[in-house]
Nucleic acid binder design. Sequence first.
DNA 1: CTAGGGTTAG
Length: 769
Amino acid sequence: MNFGHLSMSQLDSLACKISNLSQLRQFHAQLIQNSLHHHSQWVSLLISQCTRLRAPPPYTRLIFDSTPRPDIHVFISMLKYYSNLGSAHFNQVVSLYQKLQCCDLRIGTFVYPVLIKSAGSKGIEFHAHVLKLGLASDPYIRNAIMGLYAKYGPVENARDVFAEMHERTLADWNNMIFGYWIWGNKAEACRLFDIMPERNVVTWTAMVTGYARMKDLENARRYFDEIPEKNVVSWNAMLSAYAQNRFPEEALKLFDDMMNSRDQPNETTWAIVISACSSCGDCSLADSFVQKLNQKRIHLSYFAKTALLDMYAKRGSLQAARQVFDELGVSRNTVTWNAMISAYTRVGDLASARELFDKMPERDVVTWNSMISGYAQNGQSALAIDLFKDMITAADDPKPDEVTMVSVISACGHLGALDIGNWVIGIVRKNHIKLSISGYNSLIFLYSKCGSMDDAKRTFQEMTTRDVVSYNTLIAGFAAHGHGMEAVKLLSKMKGEFVEPDRVTYIVILTACSHAGMLEEGWKVFESIKAPDADHYACVIDLLGRVGKLDEAKKIIDDMPKEPHAGVYGSLLNASRIHKRIDLGEFAASTLFELEPHNSGNYILLSNIYASAGRWDDVVRVRELMRKVGVKKATGWSWVEYKGKLHKFIVGDRSHERSDDVYRLLAELGRKMRNSGYMADKTCVLRDVEEEEKEEMVGTHSEKLAVCFALLVTDAEAVIRVVKNLRVCWDCHTAMKMISNLEGRKIILRDNNRFHCFSDGICSCGDYW
DNA sequence: CTAGGGTTAG
């Protein structure tokens, strides 16, 4: 195609026929080829097509930036483009405005409404600006400002501007109604609806979305059915009302009605329908839709394709998701990238997620949150915190929001990093981030995991509304500290406040009872569970097993209505170790070797049972079995927080800068221990991984390294807080008692199970006697 | 009117 001999009006009608992005790109290429891209009118036309086709921001911006001398129409079409995107691109808009001022163009007042609308939630920042310019009384500017306050609040400002208006357009009424609904003022919205001089389909649709927002689907439907002349938007509003309120089946039923009406679905419709399928969990239905769309050769917008991507990702078809992502090419926007990143983190592929994260052209809060929570949820708390630090130091990047903070606070909790946690809480305060229930829950988690139960309780009490997670988290904290009674009390408190316990509640309550040795209370709770699952059985086996009722425990396993899983036999094996029951230990272990042959813990437990009975041949046999199967003893990390940094240690690792001092102190402590009569106990065998450290005391476990580091750097009054990511074993526990006694220090060790408070050679936990 | 991110248990 050659544009050279086409007239302007011919080109214009050609541009309006463009129906997708690749055609747009061809058109663009043709303009460049014919050197027409220097002409503002063509650029402006091109950008309006970008708006119509919802082209991605980087592409559209590229078109704008490649224009040597944009005129006012190019600026306006670019601003309109941003205002149509819906999400705020404030920085871009500001830079456009600055550029506009530099361009020595005559700026008419008609620019300001567009400018205000295009800046999204931050458009209000232009309010002061237009006041300063003395333009605030311009009717069009007033409309824009009113609409903005209606959308982003405070809605009172919108009301005031609305009240002072001399002439109100239908759009003003609609905006005001829309604003009242956004801010939850149903009464005012309905009042305006009743008194307004005329209504159009937008008005009715605003009522539908308003009621949907209040989750009042019946009224939403009532208004929907009354709409005199529906359009696609009304249908879409009702469809998404169903989809977002978890009635995907209703949505799909309505979609059928829509197909039989004179309104045909548009791209938005497809986005809603696809996400409805995705939340339905009905893969085959979604597939049949996609098939139908392909057959009819219906073009899906990048919006709908992002929904499709997410649907594939949530169902676990990562390749399909990636294919959609790749096909989107230049049409990808931030949301597409974000959806793909979270698709990867969901399956634990952090490397692929990070690769995309680093490659992305523009990152928003959700991008950062996806990556940070990706790390946090895959056990990489330290990386989550590091990335958060990057986020707040990066100049151009978005400010953290509540979701960010929830992930980061939780990460600090997992690490037991209270100093870093407090620093994070300081950032929450400084940035005036309002915490919701989840935010408070993460605080309770942080405090519980750091041993500050008073703060955890205080946070819990400060909450005006608590959900089941609030209770579960605090109960889990009590469980880890051995506070069984407080846990049980909370269970009745939550019932009194009509918060329904869920399966996690029962797990944490049973754990609490078990740790506190509260057999009767625990049993009562277990019996009250309506449909106990295998996890609950594992807890109750642990409860019985710890107090020595192993035969009863075994009988319960035999009579279980459901198939017992590894956790159930694990509880039995552990109890067999505590009570030296070789018969049951062998039974449990042999089952476990079949269920999870690569879990080294089971082999270690069994060999410890044999060792405690002096059956060394069997110990050797288990060790050989491990070698044959190819399992190695798991090695765990331990760390201490010192001066806002985590100092991590692991068996055999000497990379820490104070390692030489640490090992020297360790040797010295070992000598002191032997002199005071401590003998390496033979019950802790299978210490192969620690062979290299034979010369030191009983194997050098990571927690001993961490404690020695803390002894070196902290003063004598400070409490030493160590966190280990595995369960502390018996001989190390004994060593901790000795160290606390020898050094006269209080040591708090949190393993992945519970708290151990050592002082004067005694530990608070009742686990190792 | 539409797509993406968060808390708890063993």
